[in-house]
Design a binder for these strands. Structure first.
Lengths: 411, 411
DNA sequence: CAGAGTTTGTGTTCCTCTCCACCAAATCTG
DNA sequence: CAGATTTGGTGGAGAGGAACACAAACTCTG
């Protein structure tokens, strides 16, 4: 219910921008809304809504449709909707086992999407950049019309410096200090801003905007893939930290007696709840990927004590780590994503037992743990949201400024 | 450099309010500033600054003094300063071993202050409320003139629900679900808003505004008293969580094999780095308080291997827990407060070694660990800042609205 | 010591945005 | 079908900040 911080030193133009942004944000989040609903949601007057919506319509960003019959008395209110084709972004996802690209329009509609499997051997920047460029061209070709592209968002399994899109570390890819943003910007050659962020952080954003966490302003998302990632929403805003490295929950030290971690440390959370920890305890080979995890789940469902013990181990340690997060962040919601989402029914008992044991009652009573509602595409959707952010924050840039009012008056 | 989030649905009045707030906030944070410095800092024009400062002066919240000679060419700019006596708050602090009260004026000047020792036996709400009321009356009597009181801020060693000032748990006081805000409001009978918050959270705020962390928008503060508390600043804003319970770092589980904690859990961070952990390892009796800690530090300085080993243990575990926070929050600064501030020189080696071992290099390279620069009064100052917050956010409420401009014109 | 240059305060004018009041339109209810 | 209710449209009013021109005060230079 609040928009981002407004810079000090406001002018009337700033007000217009903020109000336009508020309207676009509401429409982006909730889909079609009648004018009167916009009045109620934003607190703006009918006159202001009329003027601003008129401007959006004139700029082609929004369209007004006929009123929906509600059965209530009073003049029906026309329904306003963002035009998905008025501005689109390219979303890219570099996951451990796959690459994906999508075209997503204003309002959040996916206009085109493609995902390919990726062998873990081919992880050089050149190969991945080339593959992604190909995917991007594919989806750009598949979009219905020549919708204008206003941004590129990239999700990547690695630690990313937000300011310039440098991947400072990605163990799954073997990358260190790779200027991914720059590389992809050059390869795609679209001359629009490019934003790169961590896959889990973007999954969190997607969950907040389109998934199970809509409306949860204080949120923790844990993504279990090969490694363990996470994202945090604080007061409705993504937690980035000073450089964008925040949310690396997988490398919280939890066990002083633990096993060595890929990051170089010992006893990281990931070494207890990561994919390989589960597989090894279940008697399987490490590195088995998603299929192996599903095997464990099937075995547990069939009554295998070994499989269930492995899942209990993961569940207990999940609860152990989550207890830290609950006591530290006092979140409203914890969303388990990635493999954890599928494991959820098998780990929930151990997880909750540990959480009950180790969290402060006050904070415990307010938090709910749920599985993700988005599939593998969560980071991809989050990347789209990230790329759309500038447009939502300041739609005025895309609105032709001062020839709307006379036209409105004469119309 | 940013003000708080502005509600959607802005009006011109909102703009004025935000700009007035920005000016007051700058003056509150930096003390005296010339008009031209205000222009530079806020981005507002000279005209706007003139009008807004004029209004503040007219309302008595600010005063303009003669220009300071800078030796630079050009017309000198008058210096604007907040009038500390124009609005004051009552700050209260319920610490483990002491109670304190202060009168703090706009701009942050402490006009009166008193602190008394408290025996740990007398911890009932009635006793503490009575003592605090007495202290408050004392400082209110000592203030120079009859400055108007605009708020009350309370720091307490316990977990506090921000919305209504209920202390949900305070092991040091033996409290559970105590409506402290309500009790104190009734006892003080000042008919001004009262805000209650955790002592460490308020220490963090004080450190951010008045201490070693000025300008650090992503900050972690760890306060070591009998227990271990903490506060987090994210993007310049205090992290509260959904109900205000955030920052309970003392109860992050860190050691599955650890000792039982007062909170009912096992292996909390507090059980490894808290006061008693140090004392017992140094061969002293637990519960010795500040004096006992100082004894350990003296012994270590004198070369005692036992004392230094105990400090190394604390330092290592401090680093272990801080590593979680660094990987999770990617802060710019970590401030060690309370007993940790005094321990700093003795634990820094072990702490940094552990931090180096367990944090992601990217995040590690950006974070600095420093001891606090504020003394025991940090929470008290933070309580004052908390109580002043509404005034800073919207000084327009305290400004007589619309009789300034005519006067300015005729003057 | 005087004039040039620089910086800042002052006051006016203009622009933009929002709000308010009134009227018109569309729908439901009895 | 008439009244009630809700909402949209329009024009005027009010408020706030920006831009501009001018005046004032200070430093620097010769």
């Amino acid at each position: 219910m609040t928009v981002g911080p407004v810079e000090i030193g406001q002018r009337s133009e700033t007000v217009r921008r903020a109000n336009l942004g508020a309207i676009v944000r509401e429409l982006h989040a909730h889909g079609a809304l009648s004018r009167s609903e916009l009045v109620a949601r934003t607190g703006l007057t009918r006159s202001a809504i009329r003027s601003l919506v008129g401007e959006l319509v004139h700029a082609g960003l929004a369209a007004e449709g006929p009123a929906t019959r509600l059965g209530t008395p009073g003049r029906p209110s026309p329904v306003v909707q963002l035009v998905a084709g008025s501005a689109v972004v390219v979303a890219l996802d570099i996951a451990v086992d796959s690459l994906a690209a999508a075209i997503v329009g204003l309002g959040g509609r996916t206009l085109a999407r493609v995902r390919i499997e990726r062998s873990r051997e081919h992880s050089s920047v050149d190969e991945i950049a080339a593959d992604l460029t190909g995917l991007a061209r594919t989806v750009l070709g598949r979009r219905p019309a020549a919708e204008p592209v206003v941004g590129i968002g990239v999700a990547v399994v690695g630690v990313v410096r937000r300011s310039d899109g440098v991947v400072s570390m990605a163990p799954n890819l073997g990358w260190r200090d790779i200027p991914l943003g720059e590389r992809l910007a050059r390869a795609l050659d679209l001359s629009v801003p490019i934003s790169v962020a961590n896959e889990a952080d973007l999954g969190t954003l997607a969950e907040l905007r389109r998934g199970a966490a809509v409306g949860a302003d204080d949120l923790v998302y844990i993504s279990g893939e090969v490694g363990v990632g996470g994202g945090v929403i604080v007061g409705g805003r993504p937690l980035t930290g000073i450089a964008g490295y925040a949310g690396e929950v997988g490398h919280m030290p939890v066990n002083p007696e633990g096993a060595p971690c890929r990051c170089g440390s010992v006893g990281c959370w990931e070494t207890e709840v990561g994919e390989d920890a589960l597989l090894v305890r279940a008697g399987l080979m490490p590195g088995g990927g998603r299929a192996a995890v599903d095997t464990v789940l099937r075995e547990a469902a069939a009554g295998s004590a070994t499989a269930q013990a492995a899942l209990d181990h993961v569940g207990t340690w999940l609860g152990f780590g989550l207890a830290s997060l609950v006591n530290l962040l006092n979140p409203q919601l914890i969303v388990l994503g990635g493999r954890f989402g599928r494991m959820y029914p098998f780990v929930t008992r151990a997880l909750h037992a540990e959480l009950d044991r180790r969290t402060l009652p006050a904070a415990r009573s307010l938090v709910t743990v749920i599985p993700t509602s988005l599939g593998v595409d969560a980071p991809l959707l989050g990347a789209a949201e990230l790329a759309l952010e500038p447009l939502l924050a300041d739609p005025a840039q895309w609105v032709r400024p001062r020839d709307t009012l006379p036209e409105l008056k004469s119309a």
